[in-house]
């Protein structure tokens, strides 16, 4: 079971969220958007300058900055 930070996913890669290390408002905001342990995330694409990145989560597309995505750990499928 390999774990990595969400911002390290390459386009098309999927993972299951393991934990959020973000705290406070950001943590809540992420959870509101469906980014919480157990959810499956797919990396879609990065913006033209490489940051932020668009992810598919629970049927919606959410853009996150790398610094924020780094605070989400995902489990990669075996």
């Amino acid at each position: 079971m390999e774990k990595t930070a969400l911002n390290r996913l390459k386009p098309g890669m999927r993972g299951q969220i393991d934990a959020l290390t973000a705290q406070g408002l950001l943590r809540r905001r992420l959870m509101d958007l469906g980014l919480m342990p157990g959810a499956t995330v797919e990396m879609l694409q990065a913006a033209p300058f490489g940051d932020p990145t668009a992810y598919r989560v629970r049927g919606a597309v959410i853009a996150l900055r790398a610094a924020d995505a780094a605070r989400i750990t995902v489990i990669l499928p075996a």
Binding site: L26, R29, I62
Partner: peptide
């Protein structure tokens, strides 16, 4: 610090 940026692309 720049705040977080979590934006939905509808």
């Amino acid at each position: 610090q720049p705040s977080s940026f979590a934006l939905e692309l509808p």
